[in-house]
Design a protein around this nucleic acid. Sequence first.
DNA 1: TAGGGTACTTACCTTTTCGTTTGTGGAGGA
DNA 2: TCCTCCACAAACGAAAAGGTAAGTACCCTA
Lengths: 111, 111
Amino acid sequence: MKKRQYSCGLDAAVDVVGGKWKALLLWELHHGPRRFGELRRRVAGISEKMLIQQLREMEKAGLVDRKVHEQVPPKVVYSLTSFGDSLNTALIPLGEWGEVHMETIEAIPRD
Amino acid sequence: MKKRQYSCGLDAAVDVVGGKWKALLLWELHHGPRRFGELRRRVAGISEKMLIQQLREMEKAGLVDRKVHEQVPPKVVYSLTSFGDSLNTALIPLGEWGEVHMETIEAIPRD
DNA sequence: TAGGGTACTTACCTTTTCGTTTGTGGAGGA
DNA sequence: TCCTCCACAAACGAAAAGGTAAGTACCCTA
């Protein structure tokens, strides 16, 4: 979330789903509601700080729903809203493209 | 382009198209081949440094083709490869999602 | 003769993003 | 009693991304 004025829909969408973790979290939540600790374990390499940061941003954006179960130890469950689900649906072709061309993408030189 | 190991296709695709400018450039080139100066004028707000940097990265990734016409003054034309075009096709649903929800996205608070 | 267009390149700086570490407070298990 | 788990929070620094400004070499137009 950096801009206010977008030049096209794609611009806006990439702004919402951009960054290192949001796409992965969307994908993981697509499989079903998840607790904080579950997400931390299933999304490889994410730190707790990044996880909570991304979740908060996605909550603000209306993509995910955060439900607190008042109990000890605490239990918080995150799930996709219908808005988040619609974004996920729109991302499916892109995900398939990525899978098909995975080897090509991995072979891109980076310097 | 930062990682080598992707956990899913979506992860890889977002890595390729991520950042502030690549989606806009892909979209612009989707309308047809463009010269450097044309892109600079049509993609609002981009600096020459960013433009050439992104174009070079997209060239390395095999998304765009760079054709130099040896003449004075110089003339360089950029166009999508079939690989770049396939990415663009995969991005269409996302672009449509962004257009449909543009107002919602613009209303997301950023602090 | 001055200014603008052609397509870049380089240096420097600021902003944003990402990662690491430490700490909270109560509860249950060895 | 110590350790771990739960779901965070806060501080700090590194790294990456992005922005600004200037320079290059040549040509055409006014």
